[in-house]
């Protein structure tokens, strides 16, 4: 019995210091890490794009609740007009807009473009937001829709004078986007645009367009952007809007500098009213300026 006792004592001394060190070693993997990893996390992915527009197209980005976004957009004349027109800068078309975030997932907006003196309204919803954590959602889904009305005089070649109803157009958009990494984001844009009246019937009244928007971050505050839409019912002498830009984010301001063949700054105008050919050098310099104002408390 005594030998067994001694044996057990030695065994316990040999074994338990070992267990003891294992316990301590586990301690050194740090219980603090375990503690912090046990905090439930559901991180919503935002900032796939710096702004709510890629260049001309809507992006999957939304305004936060209570945020006003004042947007001043300029499109200059064609760069290939040369030095006489100061590479297009003598000539400017603009849109002033105001967007407001009613909730983090619901934005409304109004705007007016000098091109065809057109007013536009926007409703934008985000039913699905990309997130990681306990529940993974790989992409964001955004629905945008709106109406536009042209108020400039319009008399067609055949002498028909457009009435108020003729000047209206509407669109619905489905955006599917993903922030693949902190540097790269990509989205697909599907648009259905209906124009009540098309001058002299040169284009279908309802057009479908499929587009893409992408962002490649160069530094924390600089990014290259690409914005393309393919109008499947494009008429002759009209072109597909393509833009290449540089976004500068300064905290509250976003400057989007770009080159594009699209003069339009609303959905009808850039999809169905682009008459310049990017590949013939009929490119315009332009910029979007976005200034955010936060109201209320979150």
């Amino acid at each position: 019995m005594k030998t067994i006792n001694a044996f057990l004592l030695i065994l316990s001394l040999v074994l338990f210091p070992a267990t003891n060190t294992i316990l301590m070693a586990q301690d050194q993997i740090s219980p603090i890490d375990e503690l912090i990893d046990s905090i439930p996390q559901n991180e919503k992915i935002s900032q796939a794009f710096y702004s709510t527009r890629v260049i001309q197209s809507q992006s999957v980005e939304m305004l936060h609740k209570g945020n006003f976004d004042v947007r001043i957009l300029h499109r200059f004349g064609q760069v290939n007009n040369g030095i006489k027109e100061f590479f297009g800068l003598d000539d400017a078309s603009m849109r002033m807009g105001l967007d407001f975030g009613i909730t983090d997932n619901f934005t409304i907006g109004v705007g007016r473009s000098s091109f065809r003196k057109e007013y536009d309204l926007l409703l934008k919803l985000r039913p699905v937001q990309q997130q990681v954590g306990n529940k993974n959602i790989p992409f964001s889904l955004v629905l945008a829709g709106g109406a536009m009305i042209r108020t400039a005089d319009e008399i067609s070649l055949s002498g028909y004078k457009a009435d108020a109803g003729d000047r209206l157009s509407y669109y619905g958009q489905l955006l599917l986007g993903r922030k693949f990494s902190n540097r790269f984001s990509l989205q697909l844009i599907q648009t259905l645009l209906h124009m009540n009246y098309v001058n002299d019937g040169i284009m279908d009244n309802t057009i479908y367009a499929l587009g893409a928007g992408a962002r490649l971050k160069l530094t924390k505050r600089l990014a290259l952007t690409l914005d393309y839409n393919h109008n499947f019912s494009k008429a002759e002498d009209y072109y597909q809007p393509l833009g290449i830009g540089l976004d500068i984010e300064t905290g509250g301001h976003v400057f989007q500098l770009h080159f594009s063949n699209a003069l339009g700054m609303n959905e009808r105008a850039y999809l169905a009213d682009t008459t310049d050919d990017f590949w013939k050098g009929e490119i315009r310099f332009g910029f979007n300026l976005s200034r955010m104002f936060q109201t209320g408390r979150n």
């Binding site: 935002s46 936060h64 609740k65 945020n67 983090d104 905290g251 509250g252 955010m292 936060q294 979150n298």
Partner: peptide
């Protein structure tokens, strides 16, 4: 943060 955009930045 009080300003959500600031939190993102």
């Amino acid at each position: 943060f009080r300003k959500t955009l600031m939190q993102e930045h």
